[in-house]
Design a protein around this nucleic acid. Sequence first.
DNA 1: ACGCCGTTTGACAGCGCTGTCAAACGGCGT
DNA 2: ACGCCGTTTGACAGCGCTGTCAAACGGCGT
Lengths: 336, 336
Amino acid sequence: MKTTVTLEDVARLAGVSPKTVSRVINGEAHVRPATREAVNRAVNELDYRPNLAARSLAASRSLLIGLLGMRLDANFFRAMYFSGVRACRARGYHLMAEEVPEITASSLAELEASLRQARCDGLILTQLSDQAPVLDMLERLQVPYVRLLPGTDPGRSDAVTNIQGEGVQLLAEHLWQLGHRRVLVSSLLGSGQRDMRAALLASGFRAADLTEVKQDWRGQTPAEMGRQLGEQLLTMNPRPTAVCAYNDEIAAALISHAWAHGLSIPADLTVVGYDDAEISRVMWPPITTVHQPFDQMMSEAVNLLLTPNSGDTPRTVICPLTLKVRESSAPPPAEA
Amino acid sequence: MKTTVTLEDVARLAGVSPKTVSRVINGEAHVRPATREAVNRAVNELDYRPNLAARSLAASRSLLIGLLGMRLDANFFRAMYFSGVRACRARGYHLMAEEVPEITASSLAELEASLRQARCDGLILTQLSDQAPVLDMLERLQVPYVRLLPGTDPGRSDAVTNIQGEGVQLLAEHLWQLGHRRVLVSSLLGSGQRDMRAALLASGFRAADLTEVKQDWRGQTPAEMGRQLGEQLLTMNPRPTAVCAYNDEIAAALISHAWAHGLSIPADLTVVGYDDAEISRVMWPPITTVHQPFDQMMSEAVNLLLTPNSGDTPRTVICPLTLKVRESSAPPPAEA
DNA sequence: ACGCCGTTTGACAGCGCTGTCAAACGGCGT
DNA sequence: ACGCCGTTTGACAGCGCTGTCAAACGGCGT
């Protein structure tokens, strides 16, 4: 792209050495304010853009952050990814998505090869936060990492998380206040972070009125899980007046299954989801759900990665969840 | 990440000069087969990974390809992006998403700044393929680009596209064969690539039986557009027996709107979408739609970008579309 | 056996930055 | 006015590759 402006050009114009320009660009200390200003003027005048490759080579940082997940095509992951891209860009970094579909020796070896290739400066873990083998490997390779929503071993690394149980509590209270008493709860095997059932009990529901369906996402799509939930619901008597789906996609599949079987949402049945995924706003009715502040979480995660920990205990940043009340939840129908 | 293996280490082990190793790594000609093999053995033995930053700096290529679109959060765009990431990775490149929300002077200036910053080796355009101001700018900056699904000016650049009208024709024939005769068609202002109405007419439908609703996505979500379509449908008499939604999201919103107003899908109404987005498989019923081979399209686009054009006319690669028949389409109800 | 010319190889410099280290500066106390 | 020490600045080398160009090689015709 023709005439490239280099750091040297800026230095010449500002009347300082290249190294000083470098210091200003990188926001280092030990630059007199007047000098800093002169450099900035020159940078603006020439519209100077530092060469990423050269920076990376000289500083032996890759300016790359990796985001690790188990399913790249999960809605949840894509939302995180795009939030992360923004957070990284704001700090001059790039974000790379990396998939670890399962925890096996071969898939770990593949990950290791890929990490040695990409030389990421740091990693953000999602869905894998509780996988000790992965954490072990990262520590062996000495790659800094931040865990998102860790469920176990909270002191093992820096982490970004929510208040334990906040999301499910918001949903449970919402359902209780609407007047629901009988609830069907969907939960996912192997993901222990959210205990909806416990939250419902804590909000006043009786154990006898709660039915929990534990599903396993392996080999199944959210659509299938939602339909299974719908089948289950139709066989129950008395029928629950509300369903807590594990996420918005399952909730969406359940809702359309319910419509197809003559149930009107929310008049006959309240359905709530989790994640505030796009689908929760595309469906009719829009789904009541818990909003995860992905932008904020990823921004904090990148921050943790790029700010060395001065203390000697890992840091944890807590991001608040919010309840999005939409049209899929309403008071239960009057008892027959 | 500790002891890094450099090209020099490989050269020493293979008993050749660094430059020769470089030639092998880059697949250049003019290397004797025996030498090439020796180098490859050394590469494998040392598990050598070239340093991206150094390559990029020395060769003054960025190893970066940009993907330009108008709305990063569109399903369509994200699917393309993730397909593109894979296609790029296979060739040692990285893919960067860039948003151009509107065609104004300021947003073009922003794009220009960003391109000068990132120094992409090439660009892939989607949604912007027909925007002359963007093309003009890229030509001025001398950034190579490939257009996806260009609607106008086909000979202006390399392009990846479908057979003109193939997708809409597949849908039109499907509806005709099912026995539908009255159809509601949703189209989007400003996106001229797909003329569903023309395809329907070509398949035998009568103009008097077709109602076209032109919508403008600016300021509206697909959910809103789907609901509007639903409202319109309910006022019509006689009611169309099928709806062609502009894409799967709009189709999904329409379907749930229809359920909520007592229409059973597909018994009372057939709905078809476009794109084969994830949502078309989450909903009940799953949506009949046109599958765009994004993986293939992006792979071809990257190919065009990285293979210099030896001829003197722009190249066009055509990727076939396929119809995915699912449960949202069925014969029309018997006439009352 | 010699020269010719296309093929293969390597020496060297340099891409545009930053790390290291030493020199210059400048404010303070005496 | 001088020395001291923390602050600010710059000289220099080098990060790990590739481009350029020239040298070495090697097969062929005579």
